[in-house]
Amino acid sequence: MNTAYVVRFVVIMTALVALSLALLSQTWAEKIKENEAIFNKRSILSAVKEYLGNDADGNPKDPKKLPDDEIIKIFDEQVEQIALDMAGNRLGPEQVQASGYPGGKAENIDMAKEKKKDEAVRILPLYIFNSNEGKFYIVSIRGKGLWDEIWGNIALKSDLNTIVGASFDHKGETPGLGAEIKDNPKFPASFIGKEIYNTDGRLISVAVKKNAGKKNPHAVDAISGATVTSVGVEEMMERGIKYYEPFFNSLKGTK
């Protein structure tokens, strides 16, 4: 087997493989993008899962189990999405596109990409969920856990103070420890009813600490054995919600 044969073999084989894989990936690209979008919508709706209403059997709807088309339907009918800049101004679709998201909608904003940008030029997605029980404001936040990035969505009541739900996810936290922020529904549920402003009207967010106590409106219990992830969640909440403060203030001003 001479060199010419080896080269010929490798070239033909690689070409065949590359061609078939490219073809497959192209045929499915659209649907995969759709799946990604639905996955994102699901996690956004998880933050307001208490207010999604009941299904036909009378059980509360679980965004993790709803079929895809229902997720899209709820999202289209009940969610209003706004893109914001760091000063709290609403951005039009063109400005979102200019930031590198051809979709032009708030849901197209990739928080991981935004996190790498300079703080001043970032753009933020905000979702307003309209339900029978009123308006809920869902903010997206992103930070750092122990091993890799963590992120989440926090839903606020229309007073822009009380948290009504949260959902978290992570890239590589330890199962059974840091990964509990996502796996254990008790952790996101512990944020419900907490307040992000103190009595003086200053934004202090919610601390994640030991022995927080049920009555403390500004703290939740940390996950034992996952100190770094807990601190990461606390830091992410504080910084992430602060980004939205200018917009909240403008909302309050117009009221």
Partner: peptide, 8 residues
């Protein structure tokens, strides 16, 4: 790709 397409 199959997983991405059918069970994200």
């Amino acid at each position: 790709l199959t997983l991405k397409r059918f069970n994200y």
